[in-house]
Amino acid sequence: MNPVRKKRLFIVLAILAGVGIAVALALSALQQNINLFYTPTQIANGEAPEGTRIRAGGLVENGSVKRGENLAVEFRVTDGAETITIRYQGILPDLFREGQGIVALGRVGADGALVADEVLAKHDENYMPPEVSQALEQSGMMKHYEEGKQEYAK
C-alpha cells in the first residue's frame, strides 16, 4: 500500500476510534437511563427514583396471580432475589401467565406495591412447537426448563 493511502487509512481509523470511544463514554454515563425497567432488587435497594412513574420488570411469580372484580389483578414479580407486588386494572397481553417475564409501568405506592397503568409481556428467545412443549411438560422437563430460565434471569 502506498504511503498516501496508508496515511488516509490511519486518519479514517483514528476518526472511527475517536467516535467509538465518545459514544461508549456517553452510553456508559447514560447506562441507567437506557435500561427500560428496574428489577425488583434495584427497587428494593432504592435505586429507582421515588414518586415518579417507573417501569418494573421480572418474572411473574408462580401462584401469585389474584384476579378481582372488573379486570383488577394483583401479582408478584420476582428476579429470584427480591419481589415486588403489582396491581393493575385492565386487559393483560396474551402472553401474560405465571412464570412469564413482564414489564409494568406505574407508580410505587406507600405500601411498596406498584400500581401499574400498563403491563407488557416480555417474550424470551426460545421458540418451540406445541407438541414439544407438551412433551416437556409430560416428562417433567418443563419445570427444569423454566428453572433454567429463572436462573438466567438472575
Partner: peptide
C-alpha cells in the same frame, strides 16, 4: 405479543 406497538427500549 408485548401489548404495545412501540416501546422506547434500547
Amino acid at each position: 405479543t408485548w401489548g404495545s406497538w412501540w416501546v422506547w427500549d434500547a
